[in-house]
Nucleic acid binder design. Structure first.
Lengths: 251, 251
DNA sequence: TCAACTCCGTAAACACCGTTCACTACTCGT
DNA sequence: ACGAGTAGTGAACGGTGTTTACGGAGTTGA
């Protein structure tokens, strides 16, 4: 049945165990508690044995971050599965709310993946190809953005947005990625339905969504927000409104 | 001349030394390198001696974060000193650009102060009074926001913003803080010049500014941004534009 | 089948960490 | 001048990441 040898199976199993225990330590006691010896203790081996699987503790944390991205993407995909294919605004709500919910429920993982400098923790994905999506999480957001574009005529004023000239090259590259995401899913679009102003607006939307979530996780709003959820939803409604979704389809 | 005793002077001097060396270690080698032994080595004492000044390493990091806030506030105040009292939009540019510049130049300090969960690092200020500004940095931003309000009639559509009802109480509290900031500086305003929609907009502006800066520091934009500065400036222009500053006074 | 080879895991060791404790000087108020 | 209080020390404890030499089990080919 299985092509793998006994040794390979055991190794894969141990590696899963290592990641799972490391995740548990991260979630429950924070990044500093993710200790090689603590992981080894939980798994039932000794600390130096971990070097058969990872180059260093930092390497382990990097791969852990990658795992987290993948799991988050799976969670968001599951949220999307319950939503009608054509209700794009509901999909945007689902993904953004899912991201916020996950971040608040797993602040340590959020910090590791979304609030670590690149030198203390390499990028989430090993790909050097900058035209590709960095990680699984980015893929989900990109897909929803792609559906958003393909399914809906953008308001005219988005195309007229004051896009800085210095950003044209970068935004064009991102525009191609977005268009590729759409066509990969069978959609057909040409460039004129996705003006640079719209690409810029999508980027700004990510700035706002990430900003809100991070501020909430880190408690850095300028005043005590006793109930941040309607604030987040209101922001989403405004973002969608600026993209032409005037009706309030907030599930 | 000095009222303090010899011992008090020496203690204060040592404490300054400790903070300075701790800051240097943080800036150059990151949070994990801020070890009690390394600090003590640089200062010229032994590690246990640090417990005469701080309860624990975490306590030291907390006070370090407070120092950082104060220094950042001083830096921003210095930036503001060069700007005409009545050119509020220039002041907004100065403070926001200063914040971004500082964050990019000191990513480790930014991470410690603005991207740490409250349980791994207590709040920047020990004040439990939630109606007060949390820290020195917040004070600077608040003052500029106050000048922005006092000096300029806000556009009417800001007052009509769709503010979630659940936020009314919190926003009203923040509104009072903002108004107090203005009156403390000699300005005279009454409530109707600062509708809740405007308070909400200021909060949203902080979300965007913080979001952009954090994404840049952590390299989490969805595509490689080869020149993020004009993107930031463009965002500031848009924020100011929404507040009624249509002319481009970008220094 | 049996030897050669690869690989996982171990124990010991090194240097470093935060923290506690007993102890020594020195400073200060009385 | 003397007792109290304080800054600092050195030793120690248990913990950390990492390297090294080594043993034993899995795999492979003749």
């Amino acid at each position: 049945m299985t092509e793998a040898t006994r040794r390979e199976r055991l190794r894969a199993e141990t590696e899963r165990d290592i990641r799972r225990q490391a995740r548990a330590l991260l979630v429950e006691h924070g990044r500093d508690a993710v200790t090689l010896r603590a992981i080894a203790r939980e798994v039932g081996i000794t600390a130096p044995a971990l070097y058969r699987y990872y180059d260093s503790r930092e390497d382990l944390l990097r791969r852990l971050a990658d795992d987290i991205c993948t799991d988050l993407a799976a969670e968001l995909d599951a949220d999307l599965a319950d939503i009608a294919e054509d209700d794009v605004s509901a999909q945007v709500y689902a993904v953004c709310r899912g991201f916020r919910r996950w971040a608040l429920a797993h602040p340590q993982e959020f910090t590791l993946v979304f609030a670590s400098t690149e030198d203390t923790l390499g990028s989430c994905a090993p790909t050097d190809d900058r035209s590709q999506v960095g990680d699984q999480f980015g893929r989900v957001f990109l897909e929803v953005a792609g559906r958003l574009i393909a399914s809906h005529p953008l308001p005219d004023d988005l195309g007229d947005l004051d896009v800085p000239a210095d950003l044209h090259a970068d935004l064009t590259a991102f525009q191609q990625v977005l268009l590729a995401t759409v066509t990969d899913r069978g959609g057909v679009v040409d460039e004129h339905v996705l003006p640079l102003g719209a690409v810029y607006h999508i980027t700004q939307s990510w700035v706002r969504i990430y900003g809100h979530v991070a501020l909430e996780v880190f408690g850095r709003f300028p005043f005590a927000v006793s109930n941040p959820e309607p604030m987040f939803d209101s922001m989403l409604a405004q973002i969608l409104g600026e993209m032409g979704f005037r009706h309030l389809s907030r599930p």
